[in-house]
């Protein structure tokens, strides 16, 4: 296990180096100029050149790449061109809302999706199954931004139960944090729950046809025991894989939800920075997301060992 961990961590470093170089090159090959974006239609050559010098954009690409790597080694992600703040501080300040949306959204998706998937599988072809599957198709088809705007209209504008937008940090007022996150989490959770329900159902159907399930039933075990002890545990492997993907997707790419609800999350930081051509922030935040991605994948792999004794990592 230890060898496995060391090998995985070493390969992660390699992946991150590739991500770092690729991000750097892709960004600098893309057209656009942060200086002109800031100056607007009153831009003139002189002001643009002055801002370029200030931002270090007048140096050759290779020099900038080497300087950036030298910074990275020292744990410094640079400073935002647009805000003037250290990138690491900006990225870390965005982690809390993104993490909470990811955790609560994924939690909602699991709590709703997995039981519904199991239920649909056990009532295969019956009315319950059809209703659940129709519901999941609907959940997958309705865009989350549309659902978000309608939820705002109903719960925030008409009923005034939840705030329309904005975010309050947990340290300031946990109750307000939760109130601010209810609608965003429901908006993303429903779609992901629909996906999880479908994955769970098909995995469950496959497992229910296995011989060990037939054996369990023929032993006279109650159906609930057959389902929870014998079938569900085997279903968990694909479900955990999908849950990992759901979590990282919600953490890094819930951009539309973050924009609509005014949540200062990672996804919005990346897209705002791309539109502003804020190179250091784009590089820093993508690298940060890549690190998170690698770690969640590692956790999923480790979860396999716990869930399935047949899995070993030499």
């Amino acid at each position: 296990m230890r060898t496995f961990l060391i090998r995985r961590l070493a390969s992660m470093l390699g992946v991150l180096a590739v991500v770092a170089i690729a991000t750097f090159l892709i960004i600098f090959l893309a057209p656009g100029d942060p200086a002109v974006l800031m100056l607007g239609d009153q831009a003139d050559q002189e002001s643009v050149a002055r801002l370029h010098r200030e931002m270090g954009l007048d140096r050759p690409l290779l020099v900038r790449l080497v300087l950036w790597f030298a910074q990275l080694v020292r744990g410094d992600l640079g400073r935002s061109i647009y805000h003037g703040e250290p990138v690491l501080r900006m990225v870390l300040s965005r982690v809390e809302p993104s993490l909470l949306v990811a955790l609560l959204g994924t939690g909602l998706a699991v709590v709703l999706g997995v039981p519904l998937g199991v239920l649909a599988a056990t009532r295969r072809a019956a009315v319950t199954d059809r209703l659940i599957m129709a519901g999941s198709v609907l959940g997958l088809s309705v865009p989350s931004f549309w659902m978000a705007l309608n939820l705002i209209l109903l719960f925030s504008v008409y009923l005034r139960w939840t705030p329309v937008s904005g975010y309050v940090p947990v340290a300031q007022d946990p109750w307000e944090t939760l109130r601010a996150l209810i609608l965003p989490c429901v908006s993303v959770g429903i779609t992901q729950a629909a996906w999880l329900a479908r994955v769970t159902r098909s995995a469950m159907l496959e497992v229910l046809l296995q011989e060990y399930v037939r054996t369990a039933r023929s032993k006279g075990l109650r159906e609930r025991v057959v389902l929870t002890r014998h079938a569900l545990r085997n279903v968990l492997l694909p479900v955990v894989t999908v849950t990992g993907i759901v979590m990282i997707t919600l953490f890094s790419s819930a951009v539309i939800i973050e924009v609509i609800f005014g949540l200062p999350g990672i996804g919005r930081l990346v897209t705002d920075s791309v539109l502003r051509r804020d190179y250091p922030v784009i590089q820093g935040s993508i690298l940060f997301v890549a690190v998170c991605f690698a770690f969640i994948n590692l956790l999923v792999d480790l979860a396999y060992v716990y869930l399935d004794p047949r899995v070993h990592y030499a």
């Binding site: 504008v157 005034r160 705030p163 329309v164 937008s165 904005g166 609509i260 609800f261 005014g262 919005r268």
Partner: peptide, 17 residues
């Protein structure tokens, strides 16, 4: 308050925030 979505800004005005 930074509220990027115009429809949401309008809703915030309607609820008095």
């Amino acid at each position: 308050l930074v509220i990027p979505d115009p429809a949401v800004r309008a809703a915030e005005l309607e609820v008095g925030k």
